[in-house]
Amino acid sequence: MADTANPGAGPGHSGDGETRRDFLYLTAAAMGVVGTAAVAWPIIDSMNPAADVRALASIVVDLSPVEEGMAITVIWRGNPVFVRHRTAAEIETARGVALDDLPDPETDEARVQKPQWLVMVGICTHLGCIPKGQRVGEEKGEYDGWFCPCHGSHYDTSGRIRKGPAPRNLDVPPYEFLDDTTIEIG
């Protein structure tokens, strides 16, 4: 009975038996790992957005009431989307910047579909606060665009990061113009 305490070395039969035994142990262990992983996935995936949440992924926005120089904020997937009707001066300023001056180089043309309409997700790319500058009279930062009060990121009139800790320009969501003054976001 002495060897029962160390059963791994217990029944030391011939080489053939040992190979068969090792194969069995490996198969069992491998199937155990596969089975556990297969069980883990539904549990993890259940925490991802559910079908009803995913179904609300697109919204239609009527832009006709938004006059030049005004902005509206709409909710898309629970987050604010900034839609700004830019003035000619703002567009000009945005297009006059040299790419070398930008921490995240991107032309203004690449960020809009129609120059006067700037559409972007209103969430600071630093740590997720909502930048100021949408409403009349709010602090707009050193570049006359948006300013994030949490950690002092300054965005220009194209929503590009110019100064402060944010690593990227404000994100542009997928959207398309259904007609001249209607967009579908998402």
């Binding site: 539904p42 549990i43 995936d45 259940s46 991802n48 559910a50 079908a51 009803d52 949440v53």
Partner: peptide
């Protein structure tokens, strides 16, 4: 119905 694998859980 809507939660991923919710029926299973």
């Amino acid at each position: 119905r809507d939660v991923n694998y919710g029926w299973l859980l």
